[in-house]
């Protein structure tokens, strides 16, 4: 009896730690837009560690926007988000997720505007760029993930992005922030759809 109790004790400690799964996935909407040729080249991956009803989430993405008309504007860079979700499902160990969470996000990027302007001083070629732009923002996320088959899960994350700041702007004010969206508004919302593979820990 004594040795049985001693053998079981480490298992109780692992249970208290509560690691139940790791999910690795991709953002299908971003990759889909890239494949459909929307003028945006973007991909994003997500890693989520499930621990005792909490999910610790890390996203990493790349984004390149090209806009043209009477002008050419190009913006490219990378971003990441890190944060935590509170999972409200009754048994989070099964891998389903219904969660609210917070993220801290940062982007590093560059942009360039080429434009011919006549402001009363003849035709002037405007070629402006920012080569070392940084941005940060926070997000309030609502996340749903459900099992499709085996360890394959899918679901969406709805994001409300707020409190953004851009650093490194010069004469050109940036229009896009990778991972955030355009800068017309102080806040932004987005809808991301993920397919993920789950690696259970027990």
């Amino acid at each position: 009896m004594s040795s049985f109790s001693q053998n079981e004790e480490p298992e109780v400690k692992r249970s208290k730690l509560g690691f139940h799964d790791l999910k690795v996935g991709v953002n299908l909407l971003r990759s889909g837009r890239t494949l459909l040729g929307s003028g945006k080249d973007t991909h994003e991956g997500e890693v989520a560690l499930g621990v005792n009803g909490w999910n610790y989430v890390f996203d990493f993405g790349t984004e390149k926007n090209e806009r043209s008309g009477s002008y050419t504007y190009e913006n490219k860079g990378t971003y990441f988000r890190v944060g935590v979700d509170r999972n409200f499902v009754q048994n989070p160990g099964k891998g389903n997720v219904l969660a609210l969470g917070l993220r801290y996000a940062r982007a590093g990027f560059e942009d360039q505007l080429i434009y011919t302007l006549n402001n009363g001083f003849g035709d002037q070629e405007i070629d402006l760029s920012n080569t070392d732009l940084k941005a940060r923002w926070f997000e309030l996320n609502f996340t749903l993930r459900g099992k499709i088959v085996s360890q394959l899960y899918t679901g969406f994350t709805l994001r409300w992005k707020f409190s953004r700041k851009v650093f490194g702007e010069e004469t050109l004010q940036t229009f896009d922030i990778p991972g955030f969206g355009n800068t017309k508004r102080e806040n932004a919302t987005s809808f991301d759809y993920y397919v993920m593979w789950r690696i259970p820990f027990k």
């Binding site: 504007y73 434009y115 302007l117 402001n119 402006l128 004469t171 004010q173 229009f175």
Partner: peptide, 16 residues
């Protein structure tokens, strides 16, 4: 003065 350019909207000319 200091000049600045921005894009008010992607469908509009750049804003000076």
């Amino acid at each position: 003065y200091d000049a600045s350019f921005s894009l008010f909207d992607s469908n509009c000319d750049p804003s000076l």
